[in-house]
C-alpha cells in the first residue's frame, strides 16, 4: 500500500464491502460518501461531539477519528442497522415516544452510544448512563429528555435487542 489509495474490506450492517479509498479518508467519510450511509452525522470532525459514533466490532467508536483503512477487517454497525421507518428499534421508539430529541442532528451518535452501552451492560444505572453519554453533545434539549428516553428504552427491555 505505498500509493495513497488503500484497499479496505469491512462488513457494514451485515454486508461485506470491499473498496479502494484514499487512505486519508475517515471511516465516517467512507460510510457517508462511498457507501451512501448518510445516517452517520459529522459534527465537529475532531472527536468532541460524538455525532459520528458507530459500533466497531461491537464497541462504540468515533468514525471521524478512525481512518477507514484502520477499520479493515472490522464489523461496522451504523444507525441504519437499528430500525426502519416502519419498525423503529426499541431504543428509537422510546426516544420518539419521550420526545428525546429536537433537531436530532446528534441522534445517530446518541442512539449508537446507547446501543453499544446496552449491549455491554444491559442494566446500567442512571449514573452509568450519564457517564457514557457524556461524550455526546446535544445543543437542543439540555439532555434531560434524552436520559428519560434511555430510561424508557431500558424499562421496555430494549437491552434484549442491543
Amino acid at each position: 500500500m505505498s500509493d495513497d489509495r488503500c484497499e479496505v474490506t469491512v462488513t457494514v450492517n451485515g454486508e461485506e464491502r470491499s473498496l479502494a479509498v484514499e487512505c486519508r479518508r475517515t471511516l465516517a467519510e467512507v460510510l457517508r460518501e462511498d457507501l451512501g450511509l448518510t445516517g452517520t452525522h459529522l459534527g465537529c470532525e475532531h472527536g468532541v461531539c460524538g455525532a459520528c459514533t458507530v459500533a466497531v466490532d461491537g464497541a462504540a467508536a468515533r468514525s471521524c477519528l478512525m481512518l477507514a483503512v484502520q477499520a479493515d477487517g472490522c464489523e461496522i454497525e451504523t444507525v441504519e442497522s437499528l430500525g426502519t421507518e416502519e419498525k423503529l428499534h426499541p431504543i428509537q421508539q422510546a426516544m420518539w415516544d419521550e420526545h428525546g430529541f429536537q433537531c436530532a442532528f446528534c441522534a445517530p451518535g446518541f442512539l449508537m452510544t446507547v446501543y453499544c452501552l446496552l449491549r455491554e451492560n444491559p442494566a446500567p444505572t442512571p449514573e452509568e448512563i450519564r457517564e457514557e453519554l457524556s461524550g455526546n453533545l446535544c445543543r437542543c434539549t439540555g439532555y434531560a429528555s434524552i436520559l428519560t428516553g434511555v430510561q424508557a428504552a431500558l424499562s421496555r427491555g430494549a437491552a434484549a435487542d442491543a
Binding site: 472527536g47 460524538g50 466497531v56 462504540a60 467508536a61 453499544c116 452501552l117 457524556s134 461524550g135
Partner: peptide, 12 residues
C-alpha cells in the same frame, strides 16, 4: 482510566 476521554475514545 475512567477519567480518560469518553468510552468511545477509550475503545480505540
Amino acid at each position: 482510566m475512567p477519567h480518560i476521554g469518553h468510552g468511545a475514545i477509550r475503545n480505540r
